[in-house]
């Protein structure tokens, strides 16, 4: 059934902080690794060691140069992009087979790969490029919010979050219920003015992006409280340093 659920219990999704993302692509690799090594159907690569490698990814990081309108120095902003688990997901309703569906209990958009004919219409209907056809299996693949992690009681609780969130070294990725206004992610969105991508496409994306802070005005108030890492060499190196100084 490719109709969308009237309302979903939870609205699980990601909140991605563009201020702290350093564009390291660790989330991309963690996503590819989890879904390929642990998942039921690997994300294939073609010509991986040849001249024209290509492959299926569920998460990709774009980098942009943003030049402020007042002409001040441009800055680089990294924008990780994966499925936004839209409320009005057009990829679900265009599906002719019912392979594409939105889970009623938490709103996660999923593909039943056994039913997928690989027509690619869902990828055309998605404005974000969240769906890709696997080059080997020829079925559509997309971010599942790691349902095989978050639903898996065999994993320790700390690991029951999407692989990209678990791995992000800067803590730029957050996972939670955006339908609950009191959840940590919802509070973060309210505090930081979280935004939707392409709101004019009317897909009702669940994921939110936290805009980069203004570096001129928003100083890190904790910075003066940080203890310096080193105040000069001690021990043998300190003696060596002082001895060499004396030599002139």
């Amino acid at each position: 059934m490719t109709d969308l659920p009237q309302a979903t219990g939870k609205r699980l999704g990601l909140v991605i902080d563009l201020d702290t993302c350093v564009g390291c692509h660790a989330c991309v690799i963690a996503c590819k690794a989890w879904n390929t090594e642990e998942g039921q159907s690997p994300l294939a690569d073609m010509d991986a060691h040849g001249a024209h490698p290509s492959g299926a990814f569920l998460n990709r990081v774009h980098s942009y140069e943003v030049t402020p309108h007042d002409g001040t120095a441009p800055r680089i902003v990294h924008v990780p992009k994966s499925c936004l688990h839209c409320t009005d997901a057009p990829c679900v309703t265009v599906c002719p087979t019912g392979a594409s569906w939105k889970r009623a209990e938490d709103g996660i958009v999923l593909v039943n790969e056994a039913e997928c004919i690989g027509c690619g219409l869902c990828a055309w209907a998605c404005p974000y490029g969240a769906r890709e056809q696997d080059p080997a299996q020829k079925v559509m693949k997309k971010c599942t919010l790691c349902v095989d992690r978050i639903d898996n009681p065999a994993l320790p609780e700390i690991d029951r979050i999407p692989a990209c969130v678990r791995t992000c070294p800067t803590g730029a990725r957050h996972f939670g219920d955006l339908g609950d206004p009191d959840s940590a992610v919802s509070r973060l969105v309210a505090e930081r003015g979280g935004m939707a991508l392409m709101p004019e496409q009317d897909t009702g994306p669940v994921n939110r992006y936290l805009p980069p802070r203004d570096k001129e005005t928003e100083l890190d108030i904790l910075a003066p409280l940080l203890t310096p890492v080193t105040e000069g060499p001690k021990g043998f190196l300190g003696w060596l340093d002082r001895a060499l100084e004396k030599l002139g």
Binding site: L18, Y64, V66, T67, H69, V79, L197, P211
Partner: peptide, 12 residues
Amino acid sequence: TGLGPIGHVRPF
């Protein structure tokens, strides 16, 4: 990208 309020966006 949602970056419009900050400035002009160019792919890097």
